[in-house]
Simulated scan of single mutants.
Amino acid sequence: MRVALTGASGLVGQFIAQRLIADGHALVALGRPSPWGGEARDWRLGEPAPLAGCDALVHCAFAHLPGRYRGGEGDDPERFLRLNRDGTLRLWQEARGRRIVFLSSRAVYDGLPEGAALTEDRPLAPPTLYGQVKLAAEAALHDQGGASLRATGVYGPPAPGQQHKWADLFAAFAAGTALPPACGTEVHGADVADAVMRLLGQDRAGAFNCSDLLLDRHDLLAAWSRIAGVQGPLPERSTARPAVMDCTRLRALGWKPGGRDALEAALRQMARL
């Protein structure tokens, strides 16, 4: 297939770009070129998409303040909506008739009661603008037969010239900073890319949860200390545990995330950078 990919140089998009090329597909990077090769076409969110000759679209690009997703609109929510919601809805119309996979977010579940089961069939009303935009884009896409991937926090080695998501955390740990407890859900970027390929290959529609590990900051930093030989003060284990997304729908397609082995391998790669 010839696959158009937005956000090909981003935290998640870089893994999808690598996988598309590795699997022998023709990559068309819309916007910033991919560091892994493929064709590049000039494009920005909200502009007409140059999709000529493309069989499928994977949409990962999102305009937000650096490092912020929830709250990523800053003091300009109108621009945030114009680019991310309206620009994405325009993209769906332009890509009609092609296979489409959208990188959505766990944020669509924000606002549910504590302990609620995070399954794809729940009625949702996220309180953040970020979650609302993702959910609106999902709804429009599902109506025309596309698939959305509700990914949790994504980790993995960075693209060339970039930092991985935990770079600042690890630096603070090495500097002896007292870090607060925290716990979250994570998935390796390569596992997200595998999920995308399964959705493209089986032409699936609707929402699919994508999550792997429940990871406490204490355990992450302990593993980093052991692997990288860095010493620092470990935070207490968190007493708060986020709900874990039910990934039964995605696993039914044969998806098997890497678990602790993938985390260990990624940390070893990061330690060599």
Rank of each mutant, 00 (worst) to 15 (best):
M1N: 08
M1K: 00
V3E: 05
A4E: 05
S9H: 09
G10F: 01
L20E: 01
G24Q: 03
H25P: 10
L27T: 02
L27A: 04
L30W: 00
P33W: 03
S34F: 05
W36G: 01
G38T: 03
E39N: 03
G46S: 04
E47G: 06
P48W: 00
P48C: 06
A49K: 02
G53P: 09
A56R: 08
V58S: 11
A63Y: 03
A63H: 13
G67R: 06
R68V: 14
D76P: 07
E78C: 09
E78Y: 10
L83A: 13
R85K: 02
G87V: 10
G87L: 11
T88A: 07
T88C: 10
L89E: 13
E94G: 01
R98Y: 00
F102V: 10
S104H: 07
P113Y: 12
L118R: 08
L118K: 07
R122W: 09
P123S: 05
A125L: 11
Q132S: 12
V133P: 08
A136Y: 03
H142P: 06
G146T: 07
A151G: 14
A151Y: 07
G161A: 10
K165C: 14
W166E: 13
A167E: 04
L169K: 14
A171V: 08
A172Y: 06
A174M: 05
T177S: 13
L179S: 12
P180L: 05
C183N: 13
G184F: 15
T185Y: 07
E186K: 13
V187L: 08
V187E: 00
A190Q: 13
A190M: 09
V192I: 15
A193F: 04
M197Q: 14
R198N: 10
L200E: 12
D212V: 04
D212R: 05
D219C: 00
L220V: 02
A222Q: 15
R226D: 15
I227Q: 13
I227C: 11
L234F: 04
L234Q: 02
E236H: 12
E236A: 15
P242H: 06
A243Y: 00
C247Y: 07
W255Y: 02
W255S: 00
W255F: 02
W255Q: 04
R260M: 15
A266P: 10
R272W: 03
L273C: 06
